[in-house]
């Protein structure tokens, strides 16, 4: 049956739930495009034959192939679009620098798209707040205090805070830090927010 390859792509995305990004399936994509090409060529010969010899009984077959072409197109568009949604989410969850194992799963065009998205987001955030700029990825939950208690979950090296103090983030050490400084690190799982 036609369009099985395209369905494989969709199933692959559906399987990796919670917005994880599976590796870009370039091979699968190429196979679908090949199938579309051969469908198109078959249709072209049938259309020519139907026109020149007046063989109208070929029309149902042409229509069937045309449906398959449209279906393949839909699957590919959905595949690429859903991946873009996932990549966009990565910007909000990980911050502007992605870990290598995630970046590895993107194709060249997606890497390019990600950096363009980063740029647009950054220039939008700079334009906010009367020329001061505003980081809208911060304070996703309304803050109750400026400083919070955090515990390190792994060695992360040194961290410099606003007043110039350098803090060594060592595994299992606890610190009292400005909230905006550690929010991203908590999201990345380096620090843990300790509630008293």
């Amino acid at each position: 049956m036609f369009c099985e390859k395209a369905m494989e792509l969709i199933r692959e995305l559906q399987r990796s739930n919670e917005g994880q990004l599976p590796a870009f399936n370039e091979d699968g994509l190429r196979q679908v495009l090949q199938e579309m090409e051969s469908l198109y060529e078959q249709n072209q010969t049938d259309v020519n034959e139907a026109k020149s010899d007046g063989r109208s009984e070929l029309i149902p077959s042409i229509k069937l192939r045309h449906c398959c072409l449209l279906r393949n197109q839909r699957c590919l568009t959905a595949y690429l679009y859903d991946r873009l949604l996932r990549i966009r989410a990565l910007r909000w969850e990980y911050g502007s620098v992605l870990p290598a194992n995630v970046r590895f799963h993107m194709c060249a065009e997606e890497v390019q798209w990600f950096s363009q998205y980063k740029k647009s987001l950054a220039s939008f955030m700079r334009s906010l707040g009367g020329g001061e700029g505003l980081d809208i990825t911060q304070d996703m939950k309304p803050p109750k205090s400026l400083y919070i208690q955090v515990r390190c979950l792994k060695d992360h090296g040194e961290l410099e805070i606003d007043d110039g103090t350098v803090i060594l983030l060592k595994k299992n050490s606890q610190h009292f830090l400005p909230r905006w400084k550690c929010e991203q690190l908590i999201r990345q799982g380096v620090l843990e927010h300790v509630m008293s």
């Binding site: 994880q20 989410a89 995630v102 939950k141 799982g189």
Partner: peptide
Amino acid sequence: KGRASQLTASSLVLNYRKRK
């Protein structure tokens, strides 16, 4: 439980770590 304002690691990040 008063934990609504606790900052948590993103589930996406945690899932990636699990797989690793």
